[in-house]
Design a binder for these strands. Structure first.
Lengths: 190, 190
DNA sequence: GAATATACGGAGCAACGTTCCGGTTGGCAA
DNA sequence: TTGCCAACCGGAACGTTGCTCCGTATATTC
């Protein structure tokens, strides 16, 4: 309720700038990571610094706005995989890979989280809110099918994946986050 | 060779300041993390900013100097555990816990690594140089005893542990890095 | 077309990393 | 002991960043 109204209550230029900022941020995040200087994002969008802070008071607000629909896509893939995969555990594997791929492409995401406590909390909240229930369903299904034996909470597994992928951001030919994830999943059914 | 000589070739005040800096940094790192402002460390040591940069050109140099003997202790514990534990795999478990404990107590260590590429490389180098061989021996022993089946390189495992613990720095009652590590190790012998 | 609320831009402040150089001092030779 | 010089010290100064604040511009409404 009211969301639509609130949005149309905004001035046209404000809406335009918000979109420009979102596009600019997405572009800059790819090249410079989410720690990119605020000035650079503002310049890329062709707006002043005040504008960026008015629309997104916190850096986390901007990051969340940029990635929200990607997180949504990840969340929606959960039930789909559960329906299409050979077994619930296979679905778990695939979903974990999907989530990992998303994380790895987000340069320096973990970095921003750690350097700014508020940002961490916000990002954390978004991920948890959307993904914990999804992963929870997959884990329950895998447990009921008898493939999953480890007593691990969705939150715990989600964080483990996040941490493992956070460290794998930089290109290192000798380190393969997927292998670590595979071993971790193996450990969950041992 | 010559290390002793090189050290005594330094002037007395230089040696004194280096020690003061080391002590100050160790103290400040505990409270503020390894990202603590340079000025604060200098002030704590009672020296100027120039002094800190002369002795430790890079932040990583300082961090390494502070933690080097702790890393050494970790490295030396490897053979000891291998000799005392019930089995090589048990030694692996214990050594991983030891290393994890060391990492978790170093607030923001991963943080500094990521924010400064040079620092990352230096720290990385120290860890690899000292710990990869040690972990390699343990893994080989565990593999020969038949307990370890996964084909995982020491470097790969070391990084996985590092990443998992790096994310577990802040106190979160709902997340237990040890559980993740246990599952990962289980996966290595499945 | 005028009035008003809303949004914009960028100057300005504080905090930080890092460099640089004039002043100081420890150690050695005479 | 004294004097000299290389080594060392301190902190001012510069560039970059995050964030705030307010005079100006403009979209919307009547």
């Amino acid at each position: 309720m009211g969301a639509e109204q609130a949005r149309s209550a905004k001035r046209a230029d404000a809406r335009r700038n918000e979109k420009a900022l979102l596009d600019a941020a997405a572009a800059v995040f790819v090249t410079d990571g989410v720690d990119a200087p605020v000035r650079k994002i503002a310049a890329e969008a062709g707006v002043g610094m005040g504008t960026i802070y008015r629309h997104f008071p916190t850096r986390a607000d901007l990051v969340i706005a940029v990635y929200r629909h990607q997180v949504d896509a990840c969340a929606e893939a959960g039930p789909a995989l559960l329906a299409s995969a050979e077994s619930p555990f296979a679905a778990l594997r695939e979903w974990v890979n999907l989530f990992a791929e998303f994380l790895v492409t987000k340069h320096g995401l973990a970095n921003a989280s750690r350097s700014d406590p508020d940002g961490f909390a916000a990002l954390h909240g978004l991920f948890l809110e959307r993904l914990v229930p999804v992963l929870g369903d997959i884990l329950t299904a895998a447990r009921e099918s008898g493939e999953l034996t480890a007593d691990i909470a969705p939150y715990q597994l989600l964080r483990a994946i996040g941490d493992i992928c956070a460290g794998a951001e930089r290109d290192d030919p000798d380190y393969d986050a997927r292998l670590t994830l595979r071993l971790l999943l193996d450990g969950c059914r041992a």
